[in-house]
């Protein structure tokens, strides 16, 4: 597991760096495929099957094909290169490494104090190490990860995500119940269960309308027109 993670993590970072370095736009697209495909593999490793598959289908199979298609439509010569000047590259490298250093150094480390308030919600006293929070929140619900792959339980998030998009949150209900000390596995009360956490029905609908608007808008923007030189 960790070897696979290391491989795909390095592949995605290397791909991203090569996207920046490459000058030919189709090579950039190729390295972007390497990078985004490795990110999809990282999603699979992080038990997010559906997100990983969506990343492959929408990003790599859809968006990037569209981008390369755009490259072909807008190329004014073979292997079009629009070079970045060396000075700009040097400045970008320095600024980029400083920026990376800043982002990394802002990653929290330390410890966290976790308590439960009277409603059973978890309260983080000090925002410290995320993994300490993880250990404090989920000691009972999460199974120990022994490094092996079990396709019956790992990464099957399809149905919970589907329910979440329809406005039901089974996972939230369970977390709230499990953290109530000693009162878990009580008899099901359907009236109180699904109302515990809101789902994503409205954002889902908004996203679908948004996509329709984008579909029409993109078709309108990209419609065939006479070129400016022919008009003048």
């Amino acid at each position: 597991m960790s070897a696979l993670f290391l491989f795909f993590a390095i592949a995605s970072c290397l791909g991203a760096v090569l996207v920046v370095i490459s000058q030919s736009v189709v090579r950039m697209a190729f390295w972007l495929v390497v990078s985004l495909g490795s990110v999809a593999a990282l999603f699979f490793l992080a038990d997010a099957d559906f997100v990983g598959a969506a990343q492959l289908l929408i990003y790599v199979g859809g968006t990037l094909v569209l981008l390369v298609f755009g490259v072909m439509l807008t190329a004014s010569g073979p292997y079009m290169k629009i070079e970045t000047s060396p000075g700009e590259t040097a400045i970008a490298g320095v600024v980029g490494s400083l920026f990376l250093f800043m982002v990394i150094s802002s990653t929290p480390s330390g410890s966290a104090q976790l308590t439960l308030d009277e409603d059973g919600h978890t309260v983080v006293k000090r925002t410290g190490d995320w993994e300490a929070i993880h250990d404090a929140v989920k000691p009972a619900t999460s199974t120990p990860d022994d490094g092996s792959f079990d396709d019956k339980s790992d990464g099957n998030t399809l149905r919970p995500i589907g329910w979440a998009l329809l406005g039901l949150r089974p996972d939230r209900v369970d977390i709230t119940r499990e953290t109530e000390a000693g009162k878990k596995k009580e008899a099901a009360d359907p009236a109180s269960g699904p109302t515990a956490a809101p789902g994503y029905l409205l954002p889902f609908e908004i996203a679908s309308v948004h996509l329709l608007v984008v579909l029409i808008g993109a078709a309108y923007l990209a419609r065939a027109k006479r070129r400016s030189d022919e008009a003048s």
């Binding site: 969506a54 859809g62 149905r159």
Partner: peptide, 14 residues
Amino acid sequence: ADCGLFIMLAILSL
């Protein structure tokens, strides 16, 4: 996988 068909279509699109 629970989303087997989806993964399959995704990989074939590559």
